Simulated scan of single mutants.
Amino acid sequence: MKITLHFPNKEPKNEKDLYTKKTFTAPFIPLIVVKTLTEMREQSENNLEQFNDEELDKFIDLICITFVDQFTADDFYRGMSTDKISEFITEFHDKAFNIQRETEGSSGKK
């Protein structure tokens, strides 16, 4: 599993150089993360796209655990693009529970 976060450039040369992208890799999602996600699903009245603040914080903590603390929750909040967050959370959840969704344009027929 991979994630790309944006970090402020300490010495930007221009507007396009304000952030540096860093990609992190996790070889697998630990079983303790899956266990905690299962508990969260059982206790939550919300679906993935409608986490309350506490649920979102806990979910992001699980992401940090999966990536072996290569980045902090604060790094995640500051570096994850708003247009990618829903997609990433869904991907993370699906990978944790081995859910395979059909992508646009695929009908499943050969």
Results as ranks from 00 to 15, higher is better:
L5M: 09
V34G: 04
N14E: 10
N9V: 05
S44I: 00
L48H: 04
D94Q: 07
A96P: 02
T38Q: 11
E102K: 08
P12H: 06
E102V: 03
G108C: 02
T4E: 08
K21G: 03
T72W: 09
Q50F: 15
E102R: 09
T36D: 14
N98F: 07
E102A: 08
Y77L: 15
T36N: 10
E102C: 02
G105Q: 03
I99C: 04
L48W: 02
I89Y: 06
I65L: 11
N52I: 07
L18S: 05
A96D: 05
E55P: 01
E11Q: 09
E49D: 15
Y19G: 06
K84H: 11
I89S: 05
E91R: 13
E54D: 13
M40D: 00
E15G: 04
T72K: 07
C64M: 06
D53T: 06
D17Y: 09
D61R: 11
S81A: 12
L62Q: 02
I89Q: 07
D57A: 15
F92L: 01
K2L: 08
L31P: 00
E49H: 14
F59D: 00
L5G: 09
S86E: 10
E45Y: 08
L18A: 12
T20R: 14
D75A: 08
C64S: 08
I63K: 02
K22A: 08
P8R: 13
I89M: 14
K110E: 08
N47W: 13
